[in-house]
Amino acid sequence: MTIGKSLPSVRSASAGRAGGVPPSAPPPRDRAVSRRAAGGRRAEQLAPFVLVAPAVLILVLLRLWPLLLGVNFSFTGDGDRDGAMVGFANYVDLLHDPLFQQALRNVGLLVLLLPVAVAIPGLLATFIYLRVPGHRFYRSVYFFPAVLSPVIVGAIFNLLLSFDGPVNVVLSSVGIGPVDWLGDPDVAMFAVVGVHVWATFGMALVVFLAGFATLDAALLDAARVDGASLAQVIWHVIIPSLSRTIQFVFVTTMIGMLTSMFGLLYVMTSGGPEGSTYLPEYYIWIQQGQMNRPALASAASTVLFVIMLVVGLLQLKLLRRAGRED
């Protein structure tokens, strides 16, 4: 889009300059000079293309071309049928694989949990903005987990959540039976998502704080003068003013959930128990690395790409409509 917009503006500027008489241009004397001038004009016309070429080339060569190769690869076979075109066979396989279905169901679960994952940093940022006691301390503490690698976070929570780990010890001391956090298929996905939110909300929090910096303080004062409660201030002043920030956090959080939970899954559950914590990216890795089915993995990647595209666009559309109503 940036490229699309910049092209005509650059061209019209250069055309204008070539059409007028530049003060420093020498008057035409003979053919050679005019030819040179024509060459210069052409060079000037070409200049914008040359200038945007590196960006376009990088995008095409390193992003679009591999994407197309991958999509193309997903229509070929694995193993005995390596390299042969198999049409949609891989996609049919995917649809019939209960593991991939589970992975897609988990994506659905993530979408449902998304508002929670956005609300937590949003609320905490609001409290910090409203200067609750100790807000400076919280601001740095909240961000701390965001600098830890998922592998470290996973290892820490593996210890905490293990069957005989400290969390269960605390629970049993208050009379709640031990929960097999990472071994119970009904609990494990929530445990991993919880840890992911814990590990990443700091980044969203910072984005929210940046959003608050643009908030018009006069509106807040006006609301207070009018006697609005905290809930009313949040609902009628803060949320509408921050709608763009919220949009941004929604999309980045969703992308983060779908694409960067691999480390946590790998360390904490290995997709288990009973395959209950599979996500498409983990499925892709298993198929490519463990099952030796790279073409099937490509098909899964393509599906994940389409899901991301659809979910992202839908979210933007919904949020934009909500923003307009305000």
């Binding site: 390193l62 992003r63 679009l64 591999p66 994407l67 190769l69 991958g70 690869f73 999309v251 980045t252 992308i255 779908l258 694409t259 990216e281 892709i284 490509s298 990647s301 393509t302 994940l304 790409f305 991301m308 595209l309 992202g312």
Partner: peptide, 12 residues
């Protein structure tokens, strides 16, 4: 672009 990047990385 994030989506493209993700898919691109996965595929490349």
């Amino acid at each position: 672009w994030s989506a493209v990047l993700v898919a691109g990385l996965a595929l490349t």
